[in-house]
Simulated assay, not measured.
Amino acid sequence: MTAFNDYLKALREQKSLDIGTVAKRIGVHRHTQSNYEGHRDPPIDYLIEFAEVVDVPFTDILKKRLDDSKATEQAKNNALDSLNSVKSNDNTLDDIYARNNDLLQVKLSEVSHTSIPVDATVYIDTKDKSIAPGSMYGFLSPMNGCYFAAKLAITDTKLKLLFDSTERKDTEFNIEDGSTESHYILKTLGLLGKVVKAEIVF
């Protein structure tokens, strides 16, 4: 059993939850939950659900996983620095998801799309996270706290972020659990909502 697996078990026990209860809430088999507390490395979608069940910030779980990583110390330190750069202010993902405001005004600081360059100000409908063909969506990168925009495409098996830029490659994710899995992938990526307006400074 690794230190990270021990950590997951300790979090469950601190909440006085049994293995069966946690497995049911997350949607995995009891045997799978037992393996995640024993020796098996859990996938990202499981860890997102687990963090919610035990009511622990997802970044805390990621930091603990880094402690148990076999990556080089330099790579681990860089990853930790990236996680620490997500500040505890109004720009954190949890705060943004909790807002009631319809429109969020942000300045893009990452290469996004040829039609919306870096430094453009965009207005995002945070209540509209439905995926519509051809629509642009705003994201807050959980790794560096920077905003970017991308189009989304989804099929039964794949989710794609489309940038239409020579400076940034499209990103593709395999989805096996339909809308539930795509929802958690998008939340992990920092989906804020649909872009409804962009102001570009010439």
Rank of each mutant, 00 (worst) to 15 (best):
residue 23 A to M: 04
residue 66 L to A: 14
residue 93 L to D: 01
residue 170 D to I: 06
residue 195 V to L: 02
residue 65 R to S: 12
residue 171 T to L: 15
residue 62 L to P: 06
residue 130 S to N: 10
residue 199 E to H: 09
residue 187 K to L: 05
residue 84 N to Q: 14
residue 139 F to Q: 10
residue 48 I to T: 07
residue 144 N to Y: 00
residue 156 D to V: 05
residue 49 E to V: 02
residue 33 Q to V: 03
residue 186 L to G: 04
residue 103 L to G: 00
residue 33 Q to Y: 10
residue 154 I to L: 10
residue 39 H to E: 11
residue 161 L to T: 04
residue 31 H to W: 12
residue 93 L to Q: 09
residue 35 N to C: 01
residue 51 A to N: 13
residue 8 L to K: 04
residue 89 N to R: 05
residue 17 L to M: 12
residue 4 F to Y: 07
residue 88 S to N: 15
residue 177 D to A: 11
residue 95 D to Q: 14
residue 159 L to H: 02
residue 81 D to E: 10
residue 68 D to L: 06
residue 145 G to K: 12
residue 158 K to V: 07
residue 91 N to K: 07
residue 159 L to I: 03
residue 6 D to I: 15
residue 168 R to S: 01
residue 190 G to A: 09
residue 9 K to S: 06
residue 35 N to S: 08
residue 25 R to W: 10
residue 131 I to D: 07
residue 158 K to C: 04
residue 187 K to E: 01
residue 99 R to K: 10
residue 49 E to H: 10
residue 39 H to Y: 10
residue 160 K to M: 15
residue 38 G to Y: 07
residue 141 S to W: 00
residue 106 V to S: 02
residue 184 Y to D: 10
residue 131 I to R: 03
residue 28 V to T: 01
residue 112 S to G: 14
residue 176 E to L: 10
residue 189 L to G: 00
residue 131 I to P: 14
residue 162 L to G: 05
residue 191 L to E: 00
residue 196 V to G: 04
residue 125 D to K: 06
residue 67 D to N: 15
residue 146 C to G: 01
residue 155 T to L: 12
residue 193 G to C: 02
residue 21 T to S: 08
residue 133 P to T: 06
residue 39 H to T: 15
residue 197 K to P: 00
residue 110 E to S: 09
residue 11 L to M: 11
residue 86 V to E: 14
residue 156 D to E: 11
residue 138 G to T: 00
residue 95 D to Y: 15
residue 31 H to T: 13
residue 113 H to R: 02
residue 196 V to N: 06
residue 101 N to A: 04
residue 82 S to H: 09
residue 118 V to P: 06
residue 22 V to Y: 02
residue 15 K to D: 05
residue 86 V to L: 14
residue 125 D to F: 06
residue 62 L to D: 05
residue 92 T to Y: 04
residue 166 T to H: 07
